[in-house]
């Protein structure tokens, strides 16, 4: 196995996540895309870990950290989306343009 195949895959996933982040209308879908991106990063980390194989298993450790933080972030993110939905009765991101100049 080459390293680069994993990296390419992770790049693909990341780009897909970017597309989803920018193109989706629903706030939950955006969060979903963010998860995709995070997952791509995890893949990257682990692939490098497999290559480097240091004594501390740094890549794996950080992958674990990332999963944890991602979980926390999803929890908060969804809470916020739900709150916004309560106030605005819509989860459509396009409708949230209070900051419009």
């Amino acid at each position: 196995m080459t390293l680069v195949q994993f990296l390419l895959l992770s790049s693909l996933l990341f780009s897909l996540g970017v597309y989803g982040l920018l193109a989706r209308r629903n706030a939950v879908m955006i969060l979903l895309s963010v998860e995709l991106m995070l997952n791509a990063v995890n893949l990257n980390l682990v692939a490098f870990e497999a290559w480097i194989r240091d004594a501390f298993a740094t890549g794996n450790v950080f992958a674990i950290f990332m999963i944890t933080v991602a979980a926390a972030e999803v929890g908060i993110g969804l809470a916020i989306v739900i709150l916004i939905f309560r106030n605005r009765a819509t989860a459509n991101v396009d409708d949230f343009e209070l900051m419009r100049g």
Partner: peptide, 8 residues
């Protein structure tokens, strides 16, 4: 026009 207020 750039300031749409839309995060995306």
């Amino acid at each position: 026009r750039a300031q749409t207020g839309r995060v995306q």
